[in-house]
Amino acid sequence: MLLFRSEETVEAWCAERNLPVRPMITLDQLWALAQEWYSNRLTEESRRPGPDEMASIFARIGLADPFWDPNAP
């Protein structure tokens, strides 16, 4: 999971490796993911979200593409 200055540098990175361009996410979406995953990581009750929770989190922050489906084969 890498950071890029722009969509153009993502496209160049993918083209150089013959990889498909995947859905890109904004800094605000990335921050929302970081908070959802890690804000309680140093507490007793912390755990990684399960697949259904992940799907709910992704939908809530606008990541609806099938790429984000944790249950997809």
Binding site: F4, E7, T26
Partner: peptide
């Protein structure tokens, strides 16, 4: 900036 994930979830 944008973040890019090469691998599906």
């Amino acid at each position: 900036c944008v973040a890019h994930f090469a691998v599906p979830a």
